[in-house]
Simulated scan of single mutants.
Amino acid sequence: MVGTLFVAVTYMVVTVLLYGLVSILGAARGYPEAPDGTVEFGPVPSTAVDLLTIAVAIPVVLLAVRWIGRRPAGTVSSVTGGLRWRWLGLCVLTALPVLAVTTGVMLLLPAEDEPAARWAGWEFFGPALAMLVVLVPLQAAAEEYVFRGWLTQAVGAFLRSPWWAIAPQAVLFAAAHGWGTPWGFADLVVYGAVAGWLTVRTGGLEAAIGLHAVNNLFAFGISAAVVDGLKSDDTAADAPWQLVALDLAGIALYTVAVLWLARRRPPARTAPAPTPVPPPFPSGYAQVPLPYTPVPGFPVPYGVHADASGLPQGTAPSASPEDGDSTPPPRPAAGTSNSPQRPVA
């Protein structure tokens, strides 16, 4: 609960600071002021700023996991302690053809009470697409780290069933996009629930990130391709029922494909067991003390006790060469009262 409060407050502070810094830089460069009081950079830079303000949630979540949760930051990504890049790549490749088909069908639907879209031209679409390819995956991943990562783990820490942890984040995810239409809100709730279940089922955020990133790339790419498309304030919550039906079909097809892929190439679903530490001495064997030569002025090592002569107990002074006997003293027998060795367990 402390970590959730930290994520919310820190994210708000970072967002305000980022917007303030951007506004100062924009005003210094002479950009005009928008009706809402912000600096008007234009469609592409303004969209980039909006995406960046969402993407900064990733370091905020990682910091909360490491500092508040007191565990490796990568454990919010997957059970292996980090993003499984190979599995993420497979999920992206799975989402591309599925969402390409559903998006193409959406484009064929007749538009109601909307003017015909006009091609924006490559001089606008090219830079916009380059910006989207870089920032949209970060924006999509940030939302997954917050909802399917942090919130799912934070709620799941108190419950046994994963469904009780999946349901709250799905509703909060939909609410974060606005209320819009009932169809659009329900679509977002279903997406959040499916993404949360895939996260639990596959042991990480990769499946959810792949679906989210590819979906948003198609959506933003279509908006950038038409005149004033990036200026629209509509979100997925504003979608009509026809688009919702196609979107749910794409989510279902992607889920089936990922589950089939997970059976063919199963990813890790549980955290690796800690490496056992071997005992200092094998069971059934006594410790054999190493020879010890006392050095004047230095303490006797731990576990070895010196007698009045300054030598470890259980040893005798070696005979000097003048005594005519160079035979070393016998080693004390195991189990004697003056032996420093460890008793057998």
Score class of each variant (00 low, 15 high):
Pro182Cys: 07
Pro182Asp: 03
Ala186Asn: 00
Leu188Pro: 00
Val189Thr: 01
Val190Thr: 06
Val190Leu: 12
Tyr191Phe: 15
Gly192Ser: 08
Ala193Asn: 03
Ala195Glu: 03
Gly196His: 01
Trp197Leu: 12
Trp197Cys: 05
Leu198Asp: 04
Thr199His: 10
Thr199Asp: 04
Thr199Val: 09
Val200Lys: 10
Val200Ile: 13
Arg201Ser: 14
Gly203Lys: 03
Gly204Tyr: 04
Ala207Arg: 07
Gly210Asp: 00
Gly210Glu: 05
Leu211Arg: 00
Ala213Ile: 05
Val214Met: 09
Asn216Lys: 05
Leu217Trp: 02
Leu217Glu: 04
Leu217Ile: 13
Phe218Glu: 02
Phe220Ile: 11
Gly221His: 10
Ile222Tyr: 13
Ala224Arg: 04
Ala224Pro: 11
Ala225Gln: 10
Val226Lys: 12
Asp228His: 13
Gly229Ile: 01
Lys231Met: 10
Lys231Phe: 04
Ser232Ala: 15
Thr235Met: 09
Ala237Leu: 08
Asp238His: 14
Pro240Cys: 08
Pro240Phe: 04
Trp241Ile: 11
Trp241Gln: 01
Gln242Glu: 15
Leu243Phe: 13
Leu243Tyr: 14
Val244Lys: 00
Ala245Pro: 06
Leu246Lys: 13
Asp247Thr: 15
Asp247Ala: 14
Ala249Gln: 02
Ile251Ala: 00
Ile251Phe: 00
Tyr254Phe: 15
Tyr254Leu: 12
Thr255Pro: 04
Leu259Ile: 09
Trp260Thr: 02
Leu261Thr: 02
Ala262Val: 03
Arg263Thr: 05
Arg264Val: 11
Arg265Val: 10
Pro266Tyr: 05
Pro266Glu: 01
Pro267Gln: 10
Ala268Arg: 15
Arg269Trp: 06
Ala271Gly: 12
Pro278Cys: 06
Pro278Leu: 06
Ser283Ile: 07
Ser283Leu: 11
Tyr285Val: 14
Tyr285Lys: 13
Ala286Leu: 13
Ala286Glu: 13
Ala286Phe: 13
Pro289Gly: 07
Leu290Pro: 09
Pro291Tyr: 08
Tyr292Lys: 02
Thr293Tyr: 08
Thr293Ser: 12
